[in-house]
Nucleic acid binder design. Structure first.
Lengths: 338, 338
DNA sequence: AACCATTGCTGAAACGTTACATCCTTGGAG
DNA sequence: CTCCAAGGATGTAACGTTTCAGCAATGGTT
């Protein structure tokens, strides 16, 4: 019971394989009646074309790889943000007859699968200039779209949100509530990374308010649940002059971790501590004290990346193609006027 | 600048293509010296074998599909549980040279891609007997492993946790704390579904404690954030004789939603209401009032499914192969003695 | 000394498509 | 009436592997 091929269809329908192929690909080189005839035979035989054969022939795969550097390190697994993003990307590709294949990529992993599998394109999340990963990717010579990566090379297609505006927005919200000593939970300030941009926005907001920048308020703890929690615990042990009344976490999970620490220490949010998050993950409204946060639209972000990648795959130039999405503020209950 | 093929390697190394192929596949049919020679040429030419060609030849794809029925309906997107599970599956496949490809599958979606892409196997999450999806899947005649699906056909390979024990465990915990009126947030009690099993465990525990079963305590709200929240709001409006002192949500997100409602209503958890969740997602310890929950090991679960699927792919019979993983209780702060 | 098994290698066919170059038909223009 | 264009169909060569059958040389058995 071997597979039904284009040849079987041709034989039964009394036409050539080429004709069947033409019908299959709707090239319009066939007369309506043969078309109908062939289609009917296909239906009867339940013919399904083989993607493998196509892939070999076309040197394509209709497969898009998503590379999340540091996937192994748990950054992704434990952050709903990435899953929501991935989900958005998946939806985008599916409607275009592409499928998604997921990869981590730690430093020493080779990218041979890109060639092995003839991947048509790549979406890369969270790299940065001079990253070892970046160089390897470029050598692959494959359509690429970068997300959440601030890359200086103008040839690279990029999708970002306006991180700096986000940092500014969150900070201004706290300033508007009367806070003067505002900490940021930033993670490592990778130069030209997402956090760095948000931090720039934070600084700008402070400056505009005439408040001097205090480096001791930058908590370089990882922006994870655990990182936020530890940062929170540490904050309580600070000498009086280093205390702060609000914290701006550069991710919602970081904010949740921080909030948990406050709860465990008996410090009330928002009465004694205001917290602003970033991302607006689906959970943020449902935390007991719902989180005020800088919202980004992941659906749109995923869509934008997919569209950009597809044009690139179809041969359109994406030089100087940088898509920056706006952010907004979702004010909830974790922030309060001093 | 066309692709380097096995032929190029053969030509340069002065051997036949067959020999190169043998080296590539380590069949051991080559002498050590030719092997070295060929390997060196491969290295020099940076030869990468084409998966497409292999796939065509072998009628395989080294691709595993994950089907999550009802994916579109947001059940997955918004539940970290699934992502954690998927992540575990991904890890399992990667180490075996397989890759993952993700599909939703609503009713009217055809499964033609399974044949189109020559998928080697399928992991299906959350179906049930007589589901329309199930029948279609079986017709595909492809190795399948079902997760979180209680299927009566003994031929089907299944991976489950001991849901009934889980339901029992959670309920007993609450009973042990002195609670007598315990609600469950169960979602629709699909016959032979996961929830149904947990509900059976709940009933058994009640019975053992000599407490009569009260159907009004079964909240068939969806076990999502929103569902939990609504259930919580409703609970507050109940007439006195229908009130309860504890709720057992069959998912952690459901528990979080319920807890949020309590918070909004000013009802203290755990002082006035005890809550038990299910799954133990990574967030559960970090909710301000950390969640007591029935824990399942997703890594192990993913691993088990992958292993089972791979043996099936390699031709081993998996008849009567049902893998049931144990559950345990993580006691945290959302439950308290009456 | 003739024979056979083993080791190491090779050539060619097959997997199921698509695209190129042809090759018939027609029917309309000259 | 001849010629050419265009429409419709066809045969075949790729795409890059793996595997099957076969061949040559080596060395050990009778």
């Amino acid at each position: 019971m071997s597979r039904i091929t284009i040849r079987d269809v041709a034989r039964i329908a009394n036409v050539s394989v080429t004709t069947v192929s033409n019908v299959l690909n709707k090239t319009g080189r066939t007369s309506p009646e043969t078309m109908r005839k062939v289609e009917q035979v296909m239906e009867e035989l339940q013919f399904v074309p083989s993607t493998s054969a196509r892939n070999l022939r076309d040197k394509k795969s209709h497969l898009i790889g998503v590379i999340v550097p540091f996937l192994e390190k748990g950054r992704l697994k434990d952050n709903p943000f990435y899953w929501q993003l991935l989900s958005a990307i998946e939806e985008g590709t599916r409607s275009h007859q592409f499928h998604l294949i997921l990869f981590g990529a730690d430093e020493n992993e080779s990218f041979s699968f890109v060639h092995e599998r003839h991947l048509d394109g790549l979406i890369v999340i969270g790299t940065f200039d001079n990253s070892p990963v970046l160089e390897r990717l470029l050598q692959l010579n494959v359509p690429c779209v970068f997300m959440d990566s601030y890359l200086s090379d103008p040839k690279l297609a990029q999708v970002n949100i306006d991180d700096q505006a986000g940092g500014h927005l969150g900070t201004k919200h706290l300033l508007g509530l009367g806070h003067r000593r505002i900490a940021v939970l930033s993670g490592v300030l990778q130069h030209n990374g997402v956090s760095h941009e948000r931090w720039l926005g934070y600084r700008r907001a402070l400056e505009e308010a005439g408040i001097p920048y205090d480096p001791s308020l930058v908590l370089q703890e990882p922006v994870s649940l655990e990182g936020g929690y530890h940062a929170g615990l540490k904050a309580a042990t600070l000498p009086a002059e280093e205390r702060f009344t609000a914290v701006f976490a550069f991710s919602d999970v970081g904010a949740i971790g921080f909030m948990k620490a406050m709860h465990d220490l008996g410090i009330s949010v928002p009465d004694q501590m205001s917290i602003v998050g970033f991302d607006d993950i689906f959970l943020s409204p449902y935390i007991p004290v719902s989180i005020t946060t800088v919202k980004q639209d992941l659906i749109e972000k995923g869509q934008a990346a997919v569209n950009m990648l597809l044009s690139q795959i179809h041969g359109e130039s994406t030089d100087n193609c940088k898509h920056v999405l706006p952010v907004s503020l979702s004010v909830r209950n974790s922030t309060k006027a001093l």
